[in-house]
Computed example of a mutant assay.
Amino acid sequence: MDFSAFGLSAPLLKAIAAQGYVTPYPIQEQAIPAILNEHDILGIAQTGSGKTASFALPLIEQFRERKPTRNRYVKTLVLVPTRELALQVATVFQSFSLYLGNRVKTLAVFGGVSINPQMKSMSGTDILVATPGRLLDLIENKAVHLSEVEVLVLDEADKMLNLGFAEEMDRIFALLPPKRQNLLFSATLADDIKAIKAKLLRNPVVISISSDTDETQVELIKQVAYRVTPEQKGPFLRYLIKQQNMEQVLVFVSSVRNADNLVVKLNKNGLEAMALHGEKSQGARTEALRRFKAGLVRILVATDLASRGIDIQFLPFVINYDLPRSPKDYVHRIGRTGRAGASGEAISLITPEDEHHFKIIQKKMKRLVETHETADVNLQGF
């Protein structure tokens, strides 16, 4: 099956080819025709499964049939939990709109930066990708109106609820017209998601590919762990990066402080690194991610929250410098590599204090991770 089977227009097919897509991923096969037929959708799908394109493509196609958008009255609203994800989703819409004669305007808005440029940029926007808090700010400033929204997308709804957006989302729902198409995507079907489903969706097409995707994705990732002492951690990380000549590596840590400290030590040892965490300004976070994706910086050191918008198709290495709190976060972290059918390697550094927790992670994942001793590794000079 190829994308032409969906009846998409020639400009869209040209943009799809330019982005390197050859055949649709499973979620795209099911979601694209259902959205084009104006069904509500409940999609249970992990990040990295091709989900964003599964709703971006049909929504852009629908704009070919719509009347021009009234200024500041957006037609499509996409709600996301983080700034990075807002930018990522908007970029997908923009890339697929590239060859349309009457370009569909997509704008990402989020907090942490000045609201004034976003207010000015709202003019002529057709598709708005927003974090809930900043959207409410723009509504209060009369920079955008929701009374003509025809499609509402909730992307990563489970994370929005976990991050405490439920009250803000309810305020937004109250401003939307009752007649609209609703597309809800989540990594899990938890009780909170079931409640939103009951509130928002009308006879939805339910697409569930999360479990198969998780298993397939984890199988594609080579996992290995190294036992280290706390004192060895930093030198062994530097040894690994240099010894394996890692040119692009994402390193996860447990806290902002650990991220900043590790970046200082890596740079002191001649390894170009930048930090990505919630205490960085939005400009600094965007620049760090841009430089890392472009290969201008070798190592990105990130906390879990900041990692939500990191989507790099061929990222070769992920390293757990600190283990995450939950097995689910472990799978999310290592899933930054091995995406969209590509292989990747995930490495974990395990101190004696981590041993019990790492056994729990492996048990939940239903997979044993090959673990090596490091006592004989010569770390002098690292």
Results as ranks from 00 to 15, higher is better:
R134I: 02
I172M: 09
S281L: 06
L152S: 02
G111K: 08
P24E: 13
D260E: 14
E287V: 08
K363R: 15
A346Y: 10
P204F: 10
I16R: 14
F292T: 12
V377Y: 13
R298L: 02
R227P: 03
D329I: 01
A53H: 15
R64K: 11
S123G: 09
S49E: 10
M274Y: 07
A108L: 06
Q313K: 15
M1N: 11
V253W: 06
A302Y: 04
R70S: 10
S186D: 12
F93Y: 15
T52I: 08
E247I: 00
K359A: 09
T374N: 04
G101S: 08
D192L: 04
D311R: 04
P33L: 12
T188N: 09
H357E: 10
F165R: 12
E148A: 13
T374R: 04
F165G: 14
T337L: 11
H145T: 00
D260R: 02
T125W: 03
L13N: 15
G338K: 08
N267V: 05
I196N: 06
L183N: 08
L77F: 04
R290F: 11
L349Y: 09
V297A: 07
N102E: 13
A306C: 13
R336G: 12
K142V: 07
S210V: 07
A56N: 05
Q232V: 01
R333Q: 13
L163V: 05
V89S: 06
G278Y: 06
D212G: 15
V369D: 13
V153H: 07
A15V: 06
F358Q: 03
P33A: 13
D322N: 00
I196K: 09
Q313R: 14
L163R: 15
R238G: 00
D214C: 01
L57M: 14
I319G: 07
T82L: 05
E168F: 02
V228L: 01
T303Y: 10
A342D: 12
